[in-house]
């Protein structure tokens, strides 16, 4: 059982929805592939307590605030990264290391806006060998994919994605990974591939990008980080454990 599953935020959210019976109503107002407009009318009332009025908001994720994701999308992303890299006995989970905030900042910045993507038409599907051919920036793709999956989850589970149990979330993620869910707007494999790529990036990138809080993912695997200088160590430490407190770029400036 993940810590997310036990968090008050989750329970509170589900209870809130049950209590007021709004889950179904919210779902029915979500237009296909357009959760953003739905947020404006539906989300504030139920979204605020979830992100700003519970203990969950005191997590690392809450320290930053969201620049790109709206309140429903950030709930989705937090739950998604928590499912992709859960907190367990091996080591920290992506959510507690701030990976949702990492993804948010990436989507708000140059990468998310396609600053290194060729986006001229015409657009054709092509072969897998020809690579990415969508007329969408990463941020447009992620936003559309979240909306698609949200609609799917509402339809099949009568819930938001983050409102699902850890087990059900993992089942949805497994179905996305296995291409068992066909999304209406974005190709499932492309969306899932980007979501997973961003999650792993945020987990292992330098902490200055918002994830890998306290260099915890580096500590877990034994990567010493940015303060790398080993000309005097490489020979003496052959086949011997080298342990050093990992340092991020900001720790060394």
């Amino acid at each position: 059982m993940s810590t997310r599953d036990k968090s008050q935020g989750d329970v509170g959210r589900r209870d809130f929805l049950k209590l007021f019976g709004v889950a179904g109503a919210a779902a029915s107002t979500l237009p296909l592939g357009g959760s953003a407009s739905a947020n404006e009318t539906v989300a504030p009332a139920i979204g605020k307590p979830r992100h700003h009025g519970t203990d969950a908001a005191k997590s690392h994720a809450g320290d930053w605030g969201y620049e790109f994701f709206n309140v429903d999308e950030s709930g989705f992303i937090e739950a998604a990264v928590d499912t992709l890299i859960p907190s367990d006995s091996t080591g920290p989970g992506a959510k507690e290391l701030g990976v949702a905030n990492y993804i948010d900042r990436q989507m708000a910045g140059g990468y998310g806006k396609g600053d290194r993507l060729y986006l001229e038409g015409p657009f054709g599907e092509g072969t897998p060998e020809q690579g990415y051919q969508l007329p969408m920036t990463p941020s447009e793709l992620i936003r559309a994919g979240i909306a698609d999956v949200s609609v799917y989850v509402q339809k099949n589970h009568k819930s938001t994605f983050d409102g699902l149990s850890a087990k059900d979330r993992a089942a949805v993620i497994a179905d996305l990974d296995g291409k068992k869910i066909e999304l209406p707007t974005v190709p499932t494999a492309t969306f899932f591939g980007l979501l997973l790529q961003l999650t792993i990036e945020g987990y292992f990138a330098d902490p200055m990008y918002g994830g890998n809080k306290d260099r915890a993912a580096w500590k877990m695997i034994g990567f010493p980080g940015a303060g790398a200088m080993y000309m005097d160590e490489i020979e003496p430490f052959r086949n011997k454990p080298y342990t050093a407190e990992p340092k991020g770029i900001q720790d060394l400036i």
Partner: peptide, 28 residues
């Protein structure tokens, strides 16, 4: 150093590489 030891910026995001937004190739 240490700023150059940034895997995300240089290895994943290709900061020192050609920006294909301006000029790229087609492939088949």
């Amino acid at each position: 150093d240490p700023q150059i030891h940034d895997e995300l910026r240089y290895a994943a995001r290709h900061d020192l590489m050609q920006n294909v937004r301006r000029e790229t190739i087609t492939f088949r």
